[in-house]
Nucleic acid binder design. Structure first.
Length: 607
DNA sequence: TCTTCTGTGCTCACCAC
DNA sequence: GTGGTGAGC
């Protein structure tokens, strides 16, 4: 990479000026209409997203499982290499690249735990004394289970927040709605448009209150920190000015801190979080300070924070596209790429250009969306240090892989009882040749046992290896693909494609492809109607088609608009609770099925 | 002292034919 | 139905 004397450095010395229109998106005018609309989605100027990830997750899982003190240095090993290093262990300079022996040299008293493994003939993974890559296969099951516990905790703590599990140790949380709820409660004057306002609901909000960030986490500074001798950062004067979006961030930070605290109390895991206006920035911010900390990136701090970052570290820019960009313009940082115009980029990179262009400027329109809970595929694989040469060996390994799939499917069905893999696929690789695969329909059985899977796998194995001259298989993969729920299968059979997930509440209706704020956004309409008829204390719920009126207690609320907002939210909660009650007894808070299973779904009813 | 760069063994999604 | 790639933990 070349080093280019950039305009950015001039800017930091105070000679340049921020390119005016580049960052307009970061300073939106926020009006009452924005505040009252609950369905602006990614265009909400008060949007707040967090990325929360567990610190040294695998190591923490083992620490919790064994009831060890958090301060003990601990590593998780997979054969001789390390797959997780606890923070106390990192103090000894141990890193994930070390081998176990290196770690022991650096810290003789290190606690080394080998990941659980499946062993030939065993139905469940365990912690065996004789782990050996030639006979065992690693199991990440414990980590998946603990990960799900944390996700469930998030969901229960934030009924109105959207949670997206991003990986085994991270989740995105959309705080926009929970923050709105707090915001209206805490600043009740916002629920009322000043009566003499000429443009009513379209006027900007009044100036926000000052924010005390001291307990809320690490603030990403507005400009590069110039530290004094004590290492304390200097802040410029304008650091104290803030916006309503900053207030929203601060509320999200409160909620996030509470959740992190509660997860620690209840499950024992410490987590780090990043809080900002979208997923991309939240993820970036989360890595600011670890472990057990949270960082906040305000809109005003975004340009400074992004500029020096190597763009190839950004998600989806780490691969081919990032390489192409680096080559084309011979640059490496976000700041460098800011000089490239949108037109220029579109000519060279077509459709992905706009997305990149916006990303560089802190804009990311991707939604926080709960992944449809069901995986499309489920795979268990094993590289074989000692290749399979006899059919019987193959059979043994297939049973190991089958045991893993059986257990994982069983566990997945505890949450989604109707999960059904349509096909089973076996891959086998010989040395460095390309792997070959065979697949077949997977039998439709209520109980998916190791035997059922292993039998199907054996058939595929014969097809695959039957005509091999010298059997020498160095890698095997067994997978379920086309995993669906019986319900959705039913729906597709019956042609009920539309609205698989009816809106949970009237307030949450999405309006795809609508750039403008709808003039009669449903919640807004309720608010303004109420504003106009100053005495009403009821509203009509579109969902249950009933008039909901305030109780005596709620009528005692300081002003009835606040009362109505509260009422509305509580009524949503009522629907939410009702949805819960109508579902089965599993404690998944959202996305419950509300109807009795029909058709093939009946196969799955517990006896 | 700090971040960054390694690699391996998985796991998952998507696409072309 | 098969094979291949890209991406991330």
């Amino acid at each position: 990479m070349q080093h280019s004397p950039s305009k950015a450095s001039a800017f930091w010395k105070g000679k340049g000026k921020e390119p005016a229109q580049d960052y307009d998106d970061l300073r939106p005018t926020i009006t009452y209409r924005h505040l009252y609309s609950h369905n602006l989605g990614v265009r909400d100027p008060l949007r707040v997203v967090a990325l929360c990830d567990s610190d040294a997750f695998y190591a923490a899982c083992e620490r919790v499982r064994l009831g060890l003190d958090p301060s003990v240095p601990l590593v998780v090993q997979q054969w001789e290499s390390l797959i997780a290093v606890s923070y106390p262990a990192r103090q000894f300079g141990i890193s994930r690249m070390d081998k176990l022996q290196d770690a022991k040299k650096k810290c003789p008293e290190i606690v080394a735990i080998h990941v659980a493994t499946y062993k030939e003939g065993e139905k469940e993974p365990g912690y065996w004394p004789d782990v050996d890559t030639r006979t065992h296969k690693v199991s990440l099951d414990l980590y998946r289970r603990e990960s799900n516990k944390i996700i469930q905790f998030f969901k229960q703590a934030l009924p109105s927040g959207e949670i997206e599990k991003a990986s085994i140790d991270e989740a995105f949380i959309d705080f926009t709605r929970p923050v709105r709820e707090v915001l209206l409660k805490r600043f009740p004057h916002l629920a009322q448009v000043p009566p003499d306002a000429p443009h009513g609901v379209d006027i900007p909000l009044p100036p926000p209150p000052p924010i005390d960030w001291s307990e809320l986490g690490v603030l990403i500074p507005l400009r590069p920190t110039e530290e004094d001798e004590d290492g304390e950062p200097h802040f410029a004067e304008d650091d104290v000015t803030c916006t309503w979006h900053d207030v929203a961030l601060s509320i999200a930070a409160e909620l996030m801190a509470k959740i992190r605290h509660d997860v620690h109390e209840n499950l024992g895991y410490t987590m780090s979080a990043g809080i900002s206006r979208n997923k991309f920035l939240a993820k970036l911010t989360a890595s600011n300070k670890k472990p057990n900390s949270q960082s906040i990136l305000r809109n005003s701090a975004i340009p400074t924070y992004l500029r020096p970052i190597g763009f190839q570290k950004i998600r989806f820019l780490g691969g081919k596209l990032g390489d192409a960009l680096a080559k084309e313009y011979d640059v490496s940082t976000v700041g460098d790429l800011l000089a490239v115009s949108l037109d220029e980029m579109q000519n060279k990179f077509g459709d992905s250009a706009l997305w990149v262009y916006e990303l560089l400027r802190g804009i990311d329109r991707s939604e926080v969306k709960e992944k449809s809970a069901l995986f499309k595929s489920m795979l268990a694989s094993k590289n074989l240090p000692t290749p399979i040469t006899k059919a019987a060996d193959g059979h043994q390994w297939l049973r190991v892989l089958a045991a893993e799939l059986a257990l994982r499917l069983k566990e997945a069905r505890e949450e989604m009882p109707t999960l059904w893999p349509k096909t089973i696929v076996l891959h086998a690789r010989k040395g460095y040749e390309a792997s070959r695969s065979k697949q077949s329909a997977f039998p439709f059985t209520h109980e998916v046992t190791v035997d059922v899977i292993a039998t199907a796998a054996d058939k595929l194995w014969k097809e695959l290896t039957g005509n091999m001259k010298n059997l020498k298989v160095t890698a095997v993969q067994l997978a379920f693909t086309g995993i669906e729920t019986a319900e959705s299968g039913q729906q597709s059979i019956q042609g009920f494609f539309k609205s698989k997930e009816p809106p949970r509440s009237p307030l949450k209706r999405t309006r795809p492809g609508n750039d403008e704020i709808p003039p009669e956004a449903d919640s807004l309409q309720v608010m303004t109607e109420l504003h106009e008829s100053a005495s009403s204390t009821f509203f009509l719920c579109e969902r249950c088609n009933r008039t909901i009126s305030a109780s005596e207690m709620e009528r005692g609320e300081a002003d009835h608009i606040t009362a109505l907002a509260k009422l509305r939210m509580e009524h949503d909660d009522f629907h939410f609770a009702q949805d819960l009650a109508n579902g089965s007894d599993i404690q998944v808070p959202k996305r419950k099925k509300t109807t009795e299973p029909r058709g093939i779904a009946r196969f799955f009813i517990k006896k």
